[in-house]
Design a protein around this nucleic acid. Sequence first.
DNA 1: GCGACAG
DNA 2: ATCTTGTCGC
Length: 229
Amino acid sequence: MKTVRVPAGWPATEEQARAAQDELRGRVVLDEPGPPPGTGTVTGVDVAYDDERDLVVAAAVVLDAASLRVVAEATAVGQVSFPYVPGLLAFREIPTVLAALDTLPCPPGLVVCDGYGLAHPRRFGLASHLGVLTGLPTIGVAKNPFTFAYQEPGAPRGSASPLLAGADEVGRALRTRDGVKPVFVSVGHRVSLDHACAHTLALTPKYRLPETTRRADSLCRRALQEATP
DNA sequence: GCGACAG
DNA sequence: ATCTTGTCGC
C-alpha cells in the first residue's frame, strides 16, 4: 500500500485552511451537467482513522456505472494532516485520497465523496475541494444534514426536498429507500444537482448509501487493519 | 458570548 | 470517525 507524506505548505492552522478555501473556491465549475447517470465509470472514496498512531487510510473503488461491478481498487496510507474541524474536513482527508486516486490503473470517471460539496458553511466542502484539485466531476453524499434545514421528503424512494441554507438550495435530501432516513446530496465540481441525485439513485438499488461509498468504506477499514499490527 | 457542527 | 453483542427480519 502506497504511503503518503503531508504536502509541503499544507495548511497548519484553521486560518490558513480557510484562506486556502477562499483561494480555490473560485475555480469550482457549476454549469456543467456532468456524465450521464448509468454510463461509464463511478468511483467511491472514503477514509478510516487510527487515532493511536495518527494514521489515515484512503480507499478508491471504481465501479462500472451500469452493472455496479467493481472494476478497480486502490488504497493509500498517510499521517493525519489536520485535526477534525467541522467545515475543514477536506484538509484531513484529501492528501491520502489523492494518493489513492493516483494509484488507480484507470480513470475514475465521476467521483462520489462521503460528505458535502456545495452544502458547506463556506460553500466549499470535501467534494468541491477534491473536484477542483483533480479536475474530475465530483458529488457529495452525506449521512447527516450538518447545519442545514430541510422538509422531510415523501416516503417513497426517489422523493426529495431542498437542503436549505437560508433561502438557497445548497443540496437535496434524497430518499434512497422507502421509509428510510434520506441521504444528503450536494454538487461538487462539474455536475448538476439533478444529475447528482440521479447518480445517487442509480447507485442505491439495495441500500440507503451508494454502492460506491459502501465499497470504499469497507475497503479502507480492511486496509487499516492490515496497516496496523 | 455560547453551542452546534460532514467525517 | 470510533468504542461495541445480540437480535430482529428478509
